[in-house]
Simulated assay, not measured.
Amino acid sequence: MLASSSRTFDLAVVGAGIFGLSIAREAMEAGLRVVVLEAGTLGSGASGGLLGALMPHMPARWNPKKQFQFDALTSIGGHLARLEAETGLSAGYRACGRILPIVSEERLDHHRERSAEAAERWVLQGRELRYDLEPCGARADWLAPEAAPFGLVHETLAARVAPRAYLAALAEALRHPAPQSTGGVPLTAAMLLEDHAVTGFDPANGQILVDGRESGIVAEQIVLTAGFRSFHLLQQVTGQAIGRGEKGQALLLDGQGLEDRPAVYCDGLYVVPHDDGTVAVGSTSERHEETTHVDMAATDDLLTRARAFCPALEGRQVLERWAGVRPRCNKRDPLVGRVPGQERMLVATGGFKISFGIAHRIAEALVDTATGRSGRITLPDSFRPEHHFA
């Protein structure tokens, strides 16, 4: 064990996005002393975006990854209800469902098959999950009929959160935890440190390096949750480049009166209404771009395309344009577990477009690994470090 001091922790979490804050809360509830170090401000990376779309994979070619995501999406409502009750803050969750246009006879046959597979795979006791086919012209006040000449899909597994509100609720839970965990363990508030760019970790003495210098912060274990920047830190340690950043851009529009509408996925874009009277539209995927400047032409194109299939967006004011860099592993699936050859270093990154929907389950699995507890969550093999590292 390391020497005890006010700057000594059981777990240092590097990055205050959705993975980092979720893991910190789970670790705190397990009775660990936790510090979170963020290079910027809480949620200033890709997690601080606009969409908050919790969208399932298609039920075809079922595999452990899809089962993991299904279990996460069907449990997140209860998880967030507990977080909201604890903090008094809303995470903006709603099981809003999703509609998808059908543009050809071939795609109609495809979705008939998906509907049958959803009836087999999307099974949840106590809640009816649907994957219904509706005729052309259905929901014409939301999806333009010409965008869906062969009808549309309406599925009810999809949901959404308000990303920044979810992060704020997690931060509040870390700063002001309940008096004790559900297991009766007294909880110690986590320390949240902004403007602390972690540049290294000395496994011999547990010293955290910030901006290239010893910080005086010591940890038994460290977990990298710094989004795409985690890949650069991992490369320093392992010599392997296993992922990259991929830029995405989105818009926020005035959406008064649209709060109860389902999300729409059309023309490669999501349109996601939120409870606060806004609608998020996005996003782009720029595979070899790691900057966060907003490209006005690209976001204008997003708006033009979205208005073409969602006529209710016409004339609505643009409230914000956003750009961020999302972490994407070279092997596509998230990376979660202990870094090979590093007994005191763990990592959770690469959620890409599904991070918000699975973060609470990733947190449980990662904290089980850190504490040596029997796994409550079975990670897909494709999430594990041995899948990603040579």
Results as ranks from 00 to 15, higher is better:
Gly239Arg: 00
Asp301Gln: 10
Ala306Glu: 12
Arg213Val: 14
Glu220Cys: 06
Val294Lys: 08
Leu303Ile: 08
Val272Ser: 06
Pro262Thr: 09
Arg328Ile: 13
Phe201Cys: 05
Arg326Ser: 01
Asn330His: 10
Val279Gln: 01
Arg244Tyr: 07
Ala250Pro: 06
Phe228Tyr: 15
Phe309Leu: 09
Thr292Gly: 08
Leu253Pro: 03
Thr299Gly: 03
Asp202Ile: 06
Thr304Met: 08
Ser285Cys: 13
Glu220His: 15
Pro311Leu: 04
Gly315Ser: 14
Phe231Cys: 03
Gly245Val: 00
Trp322Cys: 03
Arg287Glu: 10
Gln207Pro: 07
Asp254Ile: 09
Val325Glu: 00
Val272Trp: 04
Leu269Thr: 02
Ser230His: 06
Leu313Pro: 00
His274Trp: 15
Leu252Trp: 00
Val210Asn: 06
Gly245Trp: 00
Asp267Arg: 02
Leu269Asp: 01
Ala263Phe: 13
Pro262Met: 08
Val237Met: 15
Glu194Asp: 12
Trp322Arg: 06
Ala312Leu: 11
His274Asp: 10
Ala297His: 11
Asp260Tyr: 09
Asp211Trp: 07
Asp202Leu: 07
Tyr265Ala: 05
Gln317Ile: 12
Arg287Lys: 11
Pro273Trp: 01
Val318Ala: 07
Gly243Trp: 01
His288Trp: 13
Phe231Lys: 00
Ala197Tyr: 10
Leu319Ser: 05
Leu319Cys: 04
Arg321Gln: 11
Phe231Met: 02
Ala250Ile: 02
Ile217Cys: 07
Gln236Thr: 09
Val218Asp: 10
Ala241Lys: 04
Ala241Cys: 05
Asp211Glu: 15
Arg316Gly: 03
Gln221Val: 09
Gln249Lys: 00
Leu209Tyr: 09
Arg307Phe: 11
Ala280Gly: 14
Val318Cys: 12
Gly277Ala: 02
Asp301Met: 11
Glu246His: 02
Leu253Ala: 04
Ala197Ile: 07
Asp202Phe: 09
Ile242Ala: 06
Ala204Asn: 13
Gln235Ser: 03
Arg326Phe: 02
Val279Arg: 00
Arg261Thr: 09
Gly315Leu: 14
Gly200Tyr: 01
Ser285Arg: 06
Ala323Met: 11
Ala250Arg: 02
Arg261Asp: 03
Arg305Tyr: 07
Tyr270Val: 10
Ala323Phe: 07
Gly245Ile: 00
Ala219His: 05
Gly255Met: 06
Gly277Ser: 04
Arg316His: 03
Ala308Arg: 14
Val210Met: 05
Ala280Phe: 06
Gly216Met: 09
Asp254Met: 09
Leu251Asn: 01
Gly324Tyr: 00
Gln236Glu: 13
Ala298Thr: 10
Tyr265Leu: 10
Glu220Trp: 10
Tyr270Lys: 02
Arg321Lys: 12
